[in-house]
Amino acid sequence: MNTQAKYFDPQTLAKIRSIGLRARYLVEGYITGMHRSPHQGRSIEFSQHREYVPGDDLRQVDWKVYGRTDKFYLKQYEAETNLICHILLDGSESMSYRGPSSSLSKLEYAQLVAVSFAYLVLSQQDAVGMALLTDRVNQQIAPSNSPAQLNNLIGLLETSIPNRLTTLEPALKDAASRLRSRGVVLLISDFLDDANKILQGLQHLRYQRHDIVMIHVLDEAEVNFPFDQPSRFIGLEGWAPMIADPQSLRSAYRKEVQAHISKLREGARSLEIDYQLMLTQQPLHLTLPHLLAQRRRRQ
């Protein structure tokens, strides 16, 4: 099967393209048009310099400043820019979990979400980049709106290997320092970490005034704990195996999960972050449009 076709569920595409993606806040981008961007772009009026980051257009480098300082800086102009979408994908080992009744692992599902968003962004001539998170930003592709960007992103996804251990807070902090262009940050993760630390990490991104969308990917089994038989649970990411009777623990487990989700949701709201819980059994052509519609209503 064609790589792109693999990532593009025709039903999914049909749903998303009819809605479009719009930035809620001013974002900087490369294509003038629909979006308001607080960032200086390629306009007549010079605005300021900013430090060069890999992937920036070399044509914007102020060589005079380089001559003086031996450092690369870009010229920024007041202009309406395109949306820049940063997709941050959790690459931890826990994402590789696939429940007994699921056809996709969390990682595969997250990759689908990521690619779907990337395609949508690119179809609007907006720029999209991607970074894989472990305990830091592991791999990164700078935002671009070139037609080849999608393949680049897909290539990154296919070569990624789930890392054993992920702590989101330092990874988000690292990501915040790297994402210079304000834009939409699409954080896709299972958020199986301390909720407070996750929110602390998100705060770093929020300080950068990114428009953050949290997509919380979980397997239905992780939410409902539907098992009956006493079992030996072998933990991922270094957790010690544990024997438990699911029947006797189900109620307490569900409470823990719901408490965690609630905490993340509340925390996200307080940080003005969009939060969406997606279960891997839910079809994308329903969940993504729902998310996009929600954002549209809040604009």
Partner: peptide, 26 residues
Amino acid sequence: QRQRREMTWAAMQFLVAAIQKQSRRI
């Protein structure tokens, strides 16, 4: 106890928390 079914599990933090709360009663 020795013949438990084994399964890989990602959300160990919730399981551990539940066990800690229920273990004594169970």
